[in-house]
């Protein structure tokens, strides 16, 4: 009905919503492209391989964490425990490094999944609000990580160091991992029964329940995936640092991840998940910071500009919801 009236309107009236819809769908891509173009033209040495690579490597943990966050937000939830799951993974990976890098990585990732399982169980089966359940984990799990590894521990395991610093065809391995994970999550969201159920539950939980969807189980799994991805990000970041630092690794990353999801146009009201846009959202914030710093603007400027972008993204998403 709404659409018919829109089409029935004058040419200008038709054009405006279309432009707006385009901005909603592709605005974040356009912004990233525009920023890249600006840098190529005006920032000296921007395209130097080392500089560009540094940007990508830096944003990788945020990208991986925000993939899980996008799923959680798609269910109308939120996961504040991701940073702590990273720190727990950092602690576990050095504790078990004696058994080889792969077993250590597996233990660390399982630890993150366990954090997600606790949060997910609280949300799905005990009906605790997601923000409260994961806030408790945010506080508690970092404490646990600090008990396990009280101070910064450097390590010399060559395999783990290689994971963090080697490249294939000039592209850092951890960037390739993040790219692969992005594709996997996109596939899960778009093409699997589970992914469609996640989106449906976020769109209307009671309708999903009446339609026989395993709502609680799906919610639990979503938080497990988020914890698992966060732990993987924690291991990769630790590998790159060549040191385990549970005290400060992943601090405030939940905010960066939420920002990436929001800037990517996934509404906090759930029912819609934009995976690739979320990655673009993370890239946008990273590029923006790098650009402003390269042009000698102080950090505080970056923060203010980022705030404007967040508000713009929220405005665009809100309009879509009420359209």
């Amino acid at each position: 009905m709404a659409e018919l009236t829109t089409r029935g309107g004058g040419r200008v009236a038709v054009l405006k919503p279309r432009v707006f819809a385009w901005v909603q769908d592709y605005g974040v891509y356009a912004a990233v492209l525009a920023l890249l173009l600006f840098n190529v033209l005006f920032t000296p040495h921007f395209l130097d391989a080392s500089n560009f690579r540094t940007q990508l490597v830096q944003v990788t943990p945020i990208v991986i964490v925000s993939l899980g966050m996008a799923l959680v937000i798609g269910t109308q939830g939120i996961d504040l425990s991701v940073g702590s799951a990273m720190s727990l993974a950092a602690a576990l990976v050095v504790l078990y490094l004696g058994y080889g890098w792969l077993p250590a990585l597996i233990v660390a990732v399982l630890g993150g999944a366990a954090v997600g399982a606790v949060g997910g169980a609280l949300v799905a089966y005990v009906n605790v609000q997601p923000i409260v359940a994961t806030l408790a984990l945010l506080v508690g799990v970092r404490g646990l990580a600090n008990v396990l590894v009280p101070q910064l521990v450097e390590f010399r395991n060559p395999d783990l160091i290689a994971l963090g610093s080697s490249s294939v065809a000039g592209i850092p391995v951890i960037v390739l991992i993040a790219a692969a994970l992005t594709l996997v999550v996109m596939f899960v969201v778009r093409r699997t029964t589970f992914g469609r159920q996640v989106v449906a539950i976020g769109g209307n939980r009671s309708a999903s329940e009446l339609s026989g969807l395993p709502v609680r189980r799906v919610l639990l799994i979503v938080y497990v995936i988020s914890g698992l991805l966060a732990a993987l990000a924690g291991v990769l970041a630790t590998a790159r640092l060549q040191a385990s630092d549970p005290t400060s690794l992943g601090l405030f990353i939940e905010l960066s991840a939420i920002t990436a999801v929001v800037v990517g146009g996934t509404p906090l009201t759930g029912g819609r998940i934009r995976v690739l846009s979320t990655v673009m959202g993370a890239l946008l914030m990273q590029l923006l910071a790098a650009t402003l710093i390269k042009h000698n603007l102080p950090q505080s400027w970056t923060q203010m500009v980022q705030a404007v972008i967040i508000l713009a993204a929220v405005y665009a998403t809100r309009e879509r919801a009420t359209r």
Binding site: R196, V199, A200, G202, G203, N204, S206, A207, S208, L210, G270, G271, R272
Partner: peptide
């Protein structure tokens, strides 16, 4: 409230 998933298409 209990039927449609408003964010999804007819098909879904």
């Amino acid at each position: 409230a209990e039927g449609i998933i408003p964010t999804l298409s007819v098909r879904e």
